[in-house]
């Protein structure tokens, strides 16, 4: 009983808040990137690949140059590289967007491990370097994430680009008739969203000062669940991501606090929360009408 009280007490601290923020950043950036992409009408199942490639590129550049800023840029660029393939497949080739996303994720898992072997001769980790570490309030990435979150909300809701990409996602035919190039609008949305997700990946590797194989660990899929639960509206999506971050931080605390619950099950908390919300929260929002459909 005292264990539970201690646990509750530890949740009302700045340290816990910091933990929530640190865990939420990859979810936030990936999910907002996903929202941008999906609002324009392109399904974003490749978030996992963007996180993983972003994490890998950030770790390599961070290790080679020692610069956190360059590492973040590399993360964004890697995310955009994945997004470029995704956009080519979805917009030009008319490929199935769900299958494409899953294929990109599989490719990212294989490619990052392969390059890890080729470059460092190691199967599981990249060499350690001075990244950001567990720092939260002084981390440039955390503040950048806050800025990007606000930016994404403003861009989608209140700018001309936002209006165009929402139109492309709802009524591509009418949008094209109004003289807006649908394909190009979607390309811009996908690339911007992918850059966000790539930065989210950079947070994964920079916050532990190295890349670990498969370190995205399903976060891209959870982020997409957050997009759906947030009804494709960036502000709501951001709120859902913070809730996921809190759930994950809570499970970390519960494992430490010895609540008597089996650790194998406590670890599953974020997934269970996501599944329950997905199953019950219907009607919050509806997908963009032209989601997954080529022009």
């Amino acid at each position: 009983m005292s264990g539970v009280l201690e646990l509750v007490g530890s949740l009302l601290t700045v340290a816990f808040l910091a933990q929530v923020v640190r865990i939420s950043v990859p979810y936030l950036l990936a999910a907002l990137g996903g929202a941008l992409c999906e609002r324009s009408g392109v399904v974003d199942l490749a978030l996992e690949a963007k996180l993983l490639c972003g994490a890998f590129a950030a770790a390599v550049v961070g290790h080679d140059t020692g610069s956190v800023a360059l590492a973040i840029v590399a993360g964004a660029a890697a995310g955009m590289a994945v997004g470029a393939v995704q956009a080519l497949w979805a917009i030009r080739l008319g490929a199935d967007q769900i299958v494409t996303g899953v294929a990109l994720n599989l490719a990212a898992y294989g490619l990052t491990r392969y390059l890890l072997q080729v470059r460092y001769g190691q199967g599981a980790n990249s060499p350690r370097f001075d990244g950001i570490g567990a720092e939260v309030w002084l981390s440039p990435l955390v503040w950048l994430a806050a800025l990007l979150t606000a930016g994404a909300i403003v861009v989608v809701g209140f700018t001309r680009l936002g209006l165009r990409l929402r139109a492309a996602g709802e009524r591509p035919d009418a949008t094209a008739a109004a003289g807006v190039p649908v394909g190009r609008t979607r390309l811009v949305a996908v690339l911007l969203g992918s850059a966000l997700a790539g930065v989210g990946g950079a947070q994964l590797s920079l916050s532990v000062n190295g890349f670990v194989a498969e370190m995205s660990a399903g976060r891209g899929y959870v982020a997409l669940a957050a997009v759906i639960m947030g009804g494709w509206r960036p502000a709501w999506v951001a709120a859902v991501c913070l809730a996921f971050g809190a759930a994950e931080a809570l499970q970390a605390r519960m494992q430490g606090a010895g609540t008597g619950l089996p650790p194998e099950l406590v670890r599953l908390l974020p997934y269970v929360v996501a599944l329950v919300l997905l199953a019950t929260l219907r009607g919050r929002g509806r997908p963009p009408a032209a989601l997954g459909r080529p022009e």
């Binding site: 008319g94 490929a95 199935d96 299958v99 494409t100 294929a103």
Partner: peptide, 11 residues
């Protein structure tokens, strides 16, 4: 998978 996705179209 990726190339198959491109040749398969929407499924």
């Amino acid at each position: 998978v990726l190339v198959a996705a491109a040749t398969l179209g929407r499924v």
